[in-house]
Amino acid sequence: MQKTVLLIHAHPEPTSLTRTLVEAAKTSLLASGHRVLESDLYAMNWKAVFDAADFPQRVNEDRLCFVSESGNAYAKRAQTQDVEDEQAKLRQADAIVFQFPIWWFSFPAILKGWVDRVFAYGLAYGYKDAGNQHRYGEGGFAGKRALLSVTVGGPFEDYGARGINGSLEQILFPITHGTLFFSGMEVLPTFAVYGTGRLSEAETGLAIEGLNNRLDGLFTDAPIPFRAQNSGDYQDKHQLAAEIAPGRTGIVAHHAEPDLFV
């Protein structure tokens, strides 16, 4: 069955591994019969800074409150056209693939700015104008799948369970859990290529093969088993109930299979 996949990527260099993987992903998804939408943020000259210019019709001209202005702009279809266009892609997408290099343990700034501006109040958060009632497993993006496909300069050893940089999945927790799962998406385990500054042609081929294999499972692989807010694990919708993951604290406590979250 044909699905629609939004491929969002962020790298300014056309010959980069990121862009190589983007082209490979498009080829693979199209060959599988899927429809591909694309957001090439550098080619789009995407405005990364979230500021007053995002709100042509202000609720309060004296003080900028992003929540109220975002909610008003989204509800009244008074957002800037670039944001409207990206939200339209998101609505159509059954899955979103984010392809980017890890820069300082996170998104490139242009991609973070895409999230800041596109994930509006009433859509990605504050869903149905119900405050925090619909988050972490629910929300405007419920039913959509997400995959981070990242390139990492350092070796795998730096990002293993005891690596000096910390576990990659835990480093990316603010994105996978705090951005994507928060807004309702089912988030797949991250696909990563390590040591990207020194890849041989053969290793690049293996990276492409690995990504293609993951894309084959984009709609069938099990997502990361994050605990949903309204599953009963968070009885007050803020903290885990005492009987859930006893003795566990921090990031791993919010993962239903914490021993696998390394």
Rank of each mutant, 00 (worst) to 15 (best):
F141M: 01
N230H: 03
N132F: 03
L206T: 12
L180P: 04
Q133E: 12
G154Y: 14
T196A: 00
V193G: 13
P189S: 14
H177V: 05
Y121A: 15
N213F: 13
F173T: 02
A142I: 11
N165P: 13
N165G: 15
F141W: 13
G160E: 12
G153F: 04
T220S: 14
L172R: 04
L148A: 01
P174D: 06
G139V: 13
G154E: 01
M185K: 00
R145E: 11
L180Q: 06
L215W: 03
S183E: 02
A202T: 14
D216F: 02
G184A: 01
F181S: 07
P223L: 07
I224G: 10
F141E: 00
E203C: 00
G163R: 02
E209A: 15
E138R: 11
F181I: 04
L168A: 15
A222L: 13
G154K: 14
F119C: 07
Y136T: 08
L168R: 05
G178P: 11
G195W: 06
I175E: 04
Q229P: 02
T151V: 01
L172F: 11
G197V: 03
S167P: 04
I171T: 09
A146C: 09
L188M: 09
A207T: 12
R162I: 09
Q170N: 10
I164T: 10
Y125R: 02
F219A: 09
G137F: 00
H177W: 11
L172E: 10
G163P: 08
A142R: 12
I171N: 11
S183A: 12
K128G: 03
L172M: 11
E186W: 09
G166P: 09
I171H: 00
V152G: 02
L211I: 06
E169R: 03
T196H: 08
F226W: 00
T179N: 10
G131L: 01
G160R: 13
D221F: 07
Y121K: 00
E138Q: 15
L188G: 08
G140H: 06
I171C: 07
V152Q: 07
N213M: 04
R135E: 11
R214S: 01
P225Y: 05
A146V: 14
P225T: 04
N212K: 14
G153Q: 10
L168N: 09
G122N: 15
R135S: 14
L147T: 11
S149C: 02
I208Q: 12
G184M: 05
N230S: 11
R162N: 14
T204Y: 06
L147A: 06
T179R: 05
D216V: 15
L148I: 02
S149L: 00
K128F: 10
V150W: 05
A161W: 08
Q229D: 11
F181N: 01
G178T: 03
G143V: 06
N132P: 05
G154A: 15
G160Y: 14
G143A: 12
E138L: 02
N213I: 14
S183L: 00
Y159L: 09
F191E: 00
